[in-house]
Design a protein around this nucleic acid. Structure first.
Length: 967
DNA sequence: CTGTGCTACAAGACTTTGATGGAT
DNA sequence: TATCCATCTTTGTCTTGTAGCACA
């Protein structure tokens, strides 16, 4: 039987070379990891399954099941080729064929049913009939006999893998976002867009105090002019796809959104290019013209952080129930779009959009091309959520699919997303290097050999219908088609007092509806986890602006430290770009900015953001300085806005949310070591429980624990909480309590809060005496725990020095070691009074030198002794040779090593002892100036250790050479 | 269908001050 | 004989986070 790992490995494509390929290989390695055999959790499940009905339906998301299913599929293929008979229904009868002792299964379920079914091998009540090495096993159980789903919990390994995949996916999507952002900066595309724009709309760039309302006509024109197409049949880089979309006036929602961003940027450009005097004047009046500072915003629809986290979101619902199950909302004109919140997302509009979508291209155009099975799926309401997952119209695609077996839809979905993100990353490296100014836009496509494989595979999957660039936005997991994945943010200086970033979704003609984004995303069965704004080749996480219920997504986001570190450089670039763009002179060139930012990611680019000085100057030459101050203010204003949002989340309505809520807490969900202090103010109530700010939650610790942090409990402070110790300890303590006539205090854990503490005040060292604890030692958890006037010397064997010098010291306990279920103290060095530090160190150094000298001496002695052994044997041998050599048959040179080896073998066990004896003997003789033993006793035999080689001549030479070293 | 609350499970935190026997 | 040092063994309970499930 083939291992799962092997099975998974087969799906990797072979063509090497391109970056995308390498990336995919790496990702492929990652993706094969879950195929490893599982540990106990799985085993448990397997057992469950064995006890239960085999044909029970299992959760579709289980990786194990899918892998086994994949295996079973392959077997099925094999067996069917061998002419194995199958049952018509395939549900209640399954055939196994015993071939050479191994059980191989044949499944004949229909495709649809097999997606969710599972089978296991193992001992089950089965009836077998043997026929020419074939065993047919019939299962009595019906699929309905078992209802209970076995629970497979993700192991630590699963979680780790999911996190890695999540991170990789995030990085890829960030790369993709930057790619799009850069494409939006293309001057040719911007110029082309401007040329299309009616003259009256050009005036928008002259509005000093831009508001969201001012953008409406522009957005409406844009929406009217450009249409979203669900797919394209051609494959091209995003950059050329953008140009193509511009040309054909239709593209994917991603492309259209990008075009809108490019248009905004183009308008900003004209304002500067054509009215430099105006720029000067605004700068002079400090009413800086920053009306069209743009960000390209994208939801990073990333793989789940949790194992199998996508399964529920992927296919649990029929797409038709989604209010925006279309990618073509722009086909119909939105009749009423208001900048005031609450109107443009009215049911009217939604209906409109949905209706249009159904009339529009997506479902019909997609499903028309599908084979009948897929069409059937579509009819039963599932496949419209992902109508082309198993669609394959090329033979290559078929073979690929068969070799790897059907996978969980979510996995396929994710893999494709990953693939496209990687391809996009590769595209960025190739396309933009080659065609930076867009002059060779049309040829960019042909310059992308690295794309061939990803494209091909995608084409295989999508039947050549979907475009490359469409993938991330809508094609993948098209059930969520229509969820707003891309939009723009325009800085409107006329909004609020200080201006603000306004959400502008040109695809859906929605302006300033940021609070609705989350709801729409949720309606599309997606979780809004990361919203990232891209500008100037940088990026900034603006999730807070769009997420009204942070507590719901906090756990679904990656570790914030990692995320912040990833975003830090991007954020810097974004910050520079969103404020510095308009400050440049007439020769403003977005691409150059990008280049500059790329080349110089350090913060000292004077051209772009200048010094941090905030001097108010009216000279144009210091525009950059003012730009910098504006940068700071705008950036910090935005930060403040986001922070404010973070701190003003509405109270959750369910109790469970308060368990880990960063802002609020209810007493019910406090942990054992937590308490409310002070207990107030009450912010509200949830199910009758008072809600307090999380800042009131204090962590409690025992005296000993606080001690480790260099804090001690103030005198006369009573523990704020007392609780029973754990059972085991309690038992031990109880025995002691009995002995001490029932003192219950030992059985409780006394906890204190931070407000009951003061800095640790240990007794000062006096007269060279180290203050010790009741065990005669000093607990050195940290430097704070050292008694004043003492030092910790972390040196091995230093205690012997202190002892020899008769200096008072205490062993330093630095922690505990847990062995054998017990904890043992770990000591490292000693604690002595500071005044003895130098003395001890000096003595220690001397002793160290002495020890080293002794070691050296010992080594030398050992060497001498070994040479003695060798030479004695040589001498003895020579003597024997002289005395008996003539009478004995002469030894050939080849015999000698054999003899020696034999003697070595015989003497192996005695060797060490003998050499030791010899050493001692020599020592004695050396003291008394006696000649070595061998010279007296002629027939003393000396044996060699095994690591010694025997070569008379060379050894003699070596000895001659090394005699000087010995001496 | 969704939200809520309960339950059960997995994983990790926490526990916290040798004994023995061989080598030197 | 004293001292040093490696080895012994692989706990068990509690807390916390979270998935599953029943129910409103």
């Amino acid at each position: 039987m083939r291992s799962r790992k092997e099975t998974a490995r087969e799906k990797k494509p072979s063509p090497p070379g391109a970056l995308a390929e390498k990336s995919r290989e790496s990702v492929g390695k990652l993706l094969t990891r879950p195929n490893k055999p599982r540990s106990r959790g799985t085993k448990k499940e397997d057992n469950n399954l064995q006890q239960n009905d085999l044909s029970c339906k299992l959760e579709s998301g289980s990786k194990v099941n899918d892998i086994q299913y994949a295996d079973s599929r392959m077997k099925s293929v094999t067996l069917e080729a061998e002419g194995c008979s199958t049952d018509a229904t395939g549900n209640t009868v399954r055939e196994y064929q015993v071939d050479g002792g191994s059980l191989r299964g044949s499944l004949s379920d229909s495709r649809e049913e097999m997606n969710d079914s599972d089978w296991e091998d193992g001992s089950i009540p089965i009836s077998c009939s043997t026929d020419n090495e074939q065993v047919t096993i019939e299962f009595d159980e019906t699929p309905d006999s078992v209802k209970r789903k076995p629970v497979r919990r993700p192991t630590a390994e699963d979680k780790e893998l999911a996190e890695i995949v999540h991170k990789v996916h995030l990085l890829c999507l960030l790369g993709r976002g930057r790619l799009i952002d850069r494409a939006c900066d293309d001057p040719l595309i911007q110029a082309a867009l401007l040329s299309l724009l009616p003259k009256h709309l050009l005036n928008i760039s002259n509005i000093a105090k831009l508001t969201a309302r001012d953008l409406r006509p522009l957005i409406l024109w844009f929406q009217d002019y450009f249409h979203v197409r669900s797919s394209t049949s051609e494959k091209r880089s995003f950059h050329s796809a953008l140009a193509h979309a511009l040309e054909t006036r239709e593209g994917t929602s991603e492309e259209i959104a990008a075009l809108s961003v490019a248009l905004f940027r183009a308008l900003s450009l004209t304002a500067r290019v054509f009215s430099s005097a105006f720029v000067t004047s605004v700068v002079t009046s400090l009413g800086l013209k920053d009306n069209l500072i743009l960000k390209f915003v994208s939801i990073l629809d990333v793989a789940s952080l949790k194992p199998d986290g996508d399964k529920s979101a992927s296919f649990s619902q029929d797409a038709s129930s989604s209010i925006f199950h279309t990618s073509t909302p722009m086909v119909a004109r939105i009749i009423e779009v208001s900048s005031s919140p609450g109107k443009s997302f009215s049911p009217n509009v939604k209906d409109n959009i949905c209706e249009t979508s159904r009339a529009g291209s997506f479902r019909s155009s997609e499903t028309e091309n599908k084979d009948t099975s897929v069409a059937n799926e579509s009819d039963n309401g599932q496949s419209c959520s992902f109508p082309f997952v198993f669609k394959q119209d090329s033979s290559e695609g078929c073979s690929t699919q068969k070799s790897q077996g059907p996978k969980r839809k979510g996995d396929i979905e994710f893999e494709l997303q990953m693939e496209m993100a990687i391809a996009a990353t590769a595209a960025r490296m190739t396309t933009f290097a080659d065609s930076k100014m867009g002059s060779n836009m049309g040829h960019a496509h042909s310059n992308l050999p690295s794309f061939s494989s990803p494209f091909k595979r995608m084409k295989d999957f999508f039947g050549g219908v979907h475009s490359f660039s469409h993938g991330i936005s809508t094609a993948i997991g098209s059930r969520r088609v229509g969820s707003p994945l891309y939009w723009a943010e325009v800085y409107c200086s006329g909004e609020n007092l200080s201006g603000k970033w306004v959400h502008v979704d040109a695809v859906d003609a929605i302006i300033d509806e940021e609070e609705k984004v989350e709801a729409v995303v949720a309606a599309c069965r997606k979780t809004l986890r990361y919203v990232v704004a891209f500008a100037g080749n940088g990026a900034k996480d603006v999730t807070r602006r769009y997420c009204m219920k942070w507590y719901k997504i906090a756990s679904k986001r990656v570790d914030s430290i990692w995320w912040d570190s990833v975003m830090a450089p991007l954020r810097e670039m974004e910050s520079r770009a969103t404020s510095g763009m308009f400050l440049l002179e007439n020769d403003y060139n977005p691409n150059r900015i990008s280049e500059n930012l790329n080349a110089e990611s350090f913060p000292d680019n004077a051209t772009l953001h200048g010094s941090s000085g905030v001097e108010a100057s009216k000279d144009c030459s210091v525009k950059t300085d003012m730009g910098s101050s504006l940068t700071a203010s705008r950036s910090s204003l935005e930060d403040m806005e986001l922070e404010t949002r973070a701190l003003t989340e509405p109270l959750p309505t369910n109790q469970q949310a308060y368990r880990t809520h960063p802002l609020y807490a209810i007493e019910k969900w406090l942990t054992k070591y937590q308490i409310l202090h002070p207990k107030g103010p009450i912010l509200g109530f949830c199910s009758g429980h008072a809600v307090y700010p999380r800042t009131c939650v204090q962590t409690l610790k025992t005296k000993e624990r606080w001690l480790r942090e260099g804090l001690q409990v103030k005198a006369n402070e009573l523990p704020v909480k007392e609780m029973k110790r754990s059972g085991k300890l309690h038992k031990v303590k109880s025995v002691e309590d009995d002995e001490y006539a029932g003192d219950n205090s030992e059985g409780t854990l006394k906890l204190y809060g931070k407000w009951q503490l003061e800095p640790l005040q240990l007794p000062h060292a006096v007269n060279g005496i180290v203050p010790k604890n009741e065990r005669g030692q000093v607990d050195v958890w940290s430097e704070k725990c050292l008694p004043p006037g003492t030092v910790h010397l972390r040196l091995p064997r230093v205690f012997s020095v202190a002892k020899r010098l008769e200096i008072d010291y205490a062993p330093a306990m630095v922690g505990f070691e847990y062995k054998n279920g017990q904890s043992y103290p770990v000591f490292e060095g000693i604690v002595v009074c500071a005044e003895f530090k130098d003395v001890i160190l000096e003595a220690y150094r001397e002793e160290q030198e002495k020890r080293e000298a002794e070691d050296k001496k010992r080594n030398e002695m050992q060497a001498i002794s070994r040479w003695y052994q060798l030479l004695s044997s040589v001498v003895t041998r020579q003597r024997l040779k002289n005395r008996y050599g003539k009478s004995l048959p002469s030894h050939t040179s080849t015999d000698e090593p054999t003899t020696v080896n034999k003697s070595m073998q015989v003497s192996g066990s005695r060797d060490n002892k003998q050499s030791r004896e010899l050493q001692q003997e020599n020592k004695r003789r050396k003291k008394s100036n006696d000649p070595p033993a061998e010279l007296e006793e002629e027939h003393k035999h000396v044996f060699f250790t095994e690591d010694q080689s025997f070569d008379e001549e060379s050894l003699s030479q070596e000895f001659a050479a090394s005699s000087s070293w010995v001496d």
